[in-house]
């Protein structure tokens, strides 16, 4: 058990470090995912330490995993479009609404 708790802490710190030091958008997203996994790991260790085995954190982590993939998908969609702006190829129809842009 102690090994997994230590693992959770180390993963949390690695995620934290990556999130704050990485410049690349995708790398920051990966760091965030590592960070979240660390929190999930803590929850599952807590479930394992309880007697009898506690199903509630398991359900929480399952919910969390689905949420994490959803947010990752949205983040990736944004990253791709932001990266596209810096690439030379033209973008189809992206006129901003008159009066709505704010510089």
């Amino acid at each position: 058990m102690l090994i997994y708790l230590a693992l959770a802490s180390v993963l949390f710190v690695i995620g934290l470090h990556g999130l704050f030091t990485a410049r690349n958008l995708l790398r920051r997203l990966l760091s965030l995912n590592v960070l979240t996994t660390a929190v999930f790991l803590l929850l599952v260790v807590i479930a394992r330490k309880a007697t009898p085995l506690d199903p509630v954190p398991h359900a929480m982590v399952l919910t969390g995993i689905v949420i994490a993939v959803s947010t990752t998908a949205v983040a990736l969609a944004l990253v791709e479009r932001i990266a596209l702006r810096h690439s030379p190829e033209p973008e189809p129809s992206a006129s901003t609404r008159p009066g709505e842009e704010d510089a």
Binding site: L5, A8, S9, I46
Partner: peptide
């Protein structure tokens, strides 16, 4: 963090 988490009593809802 590890030490703190290790101290958790984890009563659980099992």
């Amino acid at each position: 963090l590890t030490a703190a988490a290790w101290q958790l009593p984890a009563p659980g809802l099992g």
